[in-house]
Amino acid sequence: MKKILYTAILLAFIYVPANADTVRMGTEGAYPPYNFINDNGEIDGFERDLGDELCDRAGLDCEWVQNDWDSIIPNLVSGNYDTIIAGMSITAERDEVIDFTQNYLQPDPSAYITTGDGNKAAYIGVVAAQTATIQASHVAESGAILAEFATPDETISALRNGEVEAVMADKSFLAPIVAESNGGLKFIGGDVYIGGGVGMGIRESDSDLKDTFDAAIDSMKADGSLNTLIEKWFGDEASLF
């Protein structure tokens, strides 16, 4: 037994690097079309395509990691992965703790949806939002009653079941859900602009990596390939660069 223990401890310490160029990309995998786990169990979506292309241009070797939303920043700063690429809006609050690359999506409007029959104004009712999102803070400050859920999908279920009167989330996440609900769900109120576009989150101490990705995003913006990707995943109405 002792031998095994010593070997295990020894192994933990003598273990040496092979090549240090791998960048680990953290994403949530529950927010289509930004990122989701497809039917084969792989990470898929706009950010998968984007991330792979960025890594390709920057000459990096990238590895994808799924991590739940509520612990996605703590796991970045403690070094479990090197970037967050999970539809994360750039906010001043987050910017205090981590750095963001330039935005790779225009500031995306958030919106409320409600069930088809309701005529009530969304902002006085019970509004569901995912925990620790900019929408959750917005709802809490707006005076509505906030109901928090761990995943975005649970917020939609809660609305369908009549638990809440409205859901607030990124419009591009809600749009396909509304479109496929056969009139069961609809947008209510206008678009709300909170947050400053979506960027990749990177540790503050990792400025080299930030510059690398900034340059790669620049080159994708310049040759229009970013716009092509946005149109592929978000449709024609999405705002382009």
Partner: peptide
């Protein structure tokens, strides 16, 4: 779900862990 950000002790503890990034 927590309503109006009213929850139990663990809800607030994880809220702080999330806001301060320091568990």
């Amino acid at each position: 779900p927590a309503w109006r950000q009213s929850g139990d002790a663990l809800y607030y503890a994880s809220y702080f862990a999330d806001k301060t990034f320091n568990p």
